[in-house]
């Protein structure tokens, strides 16, 4: 057993050093995932080799020597059966606990993370920074800072995949999904679409540029956008005439949006809903399905008038109207 463990650790240290066996590890979770991966690889090789060598030994040792040979019957062996039922169960239980706790840790973004928005569209990635900068098929992020992506799709299901970060999440039309990472190494990494999305699926690629904080600041200011997401959102808000009902003092036909984000509200149906990103999206595109209790359900849908990017900008604006402690970036 001791020898086995030693062999395992040697195998592990060799495997993790071999560059051809794993992609670059450039995020805070990558090493943990790789560790689990190589332990799983070791278990796989160990059992495959163990079973195969046992079979090989039996094949040689018990090869048929005469055509009319009749071997003696082997007794059934209940303890053995139980042993090889329980042992894999224990191994599986251990792996489950390890993999799940790691996943649990990896899924939860740290509370203070930079938010960036992603829209998938046949066959490109639109990236929008809160500062107003927009990119296509490129994502610039600072090293060492947790980044949370809020993602949706304009058409079919896509999947945002950065192998070097070991992160992946479907980008689904009609809803928001989110993904976070903290890059640990300055560099340029592949961004792939990992959910088949039609003709040019394989060309829906991009690059993630991980920059030092100083470089990142320079990059942010170099492409100085005239307006932040909140400002663009506010402009759209006024252009679409939202303000005529959603009067900020609360005297309009619709509820005031000031301080609404993050609150729990009661719907006409009696259901209580948290006003979150999904709620605001639904309120813009399918308003009557989330009509609030004390207001007439008269808001028209804006489906077709705004695209996913504008919805995100409107949302940034609504979030910026949130409670006092939120700053003007909606955070």
């Amino acid at each position: 057993m001791r020898g086995l463990l030693q062999f395992g650790s040697v195998f592990f240290s060799l495997a993790i050093q071999a560059p051809q066996l794993r992609p670059e590890a450039a995020s805070s979770i990558a090493e943990g995932v790789d560790h689990l991966y190589f332990v799983l690889t070791f278990i796989t090789l160990f059992f495959t080799i163990a079973i195969f060598s046992t079979i090989f030994v039996f094949m040689v040792k018990y090869r048929r020597r005469a055509d009319n040979e009749i071997p003696v019957e082997t007794e059934e062996n209940l303890p053995l059966e139980l042993a090889w039922t329980i042992l894999p169960t224990l191994i599986c239980a251990g792996l489950f606990l390890w993999a799940s706790s790691l996943y649990f840790e990896n899924s939860r973004p740290p509370s203070a993370s930079t938010e960036i928005f992603v829209i998938g569209k046949q066959w490109m990635w639109h990236i929008q920074h809160p500062e107003g900068l927009r990119e296509i098929n490129e994502l610039h992020v600072p090293v060492g800072v947790p980044v949370e992506l809020t993602m949706t799709s304009e058409d079919v299901i896509h999947d945002f995949y950065i192998p070097a970060f070991r992160v992946k999440k479907d980008v689904v039309p009609g809803r928001y999904t989110s993904l976070w990472f903290q890059a640990t190494k300055v560099g340029t990494y592949h961004l792939f679409c990992a959910q088949y999305c039609g003709a040019d699926h394989a060309e829906m690629l991009g690059w993630v540029y991980v920059m030092s904080p100083a470089d990142y600041e320079t990059w942010l200011s170099s492409g100085t956008p005239s307006q932040t997401m909140v400002q663009i959102g506010e402009k759209t808000f006024n252009k679409l005439g939202c303000a005529s009902c959603h009067v900020s003092e609360g005297s309009g036909r619709g509820p005031s949006l000031v301080g609404l984000y993050g609150k729990e509200e009661e719907l006409k149906t009696g259901e209580k809903r948290l006003v979150d990103e999904a709620f605001i999206r639904q309120a813009i595109l399918n308003p009557n399905s989330v009509a609030l209790k004390n207001y007439p359900p008269i808001m028209p849908t804006f489906r077709g008038q705004v695209d996913e990017e504008q919805v995100l900008q409107l949302m940034a604006y609504v979030k910026s109207l949130g409670s006092e402690e939120r700053d003007s970036n909606g955070k």
Binding site: V33, Y37, L40, I43, T44, F47, L95, Y103, V167, A194
Partner: peptide
């Protein structure tokens, strides 16, 4: 045996995120 054991990589949530798709 190989096919079954590599299934464990995909049942494991943390590694499936990277390997899925």
């Amino acid at each position: 045996t190989m096919g079954g054991l590599t299934g464990l990589f995909l049942a494991s949530l943390a590694t499936d995120v990277h390997l899925n798709g």
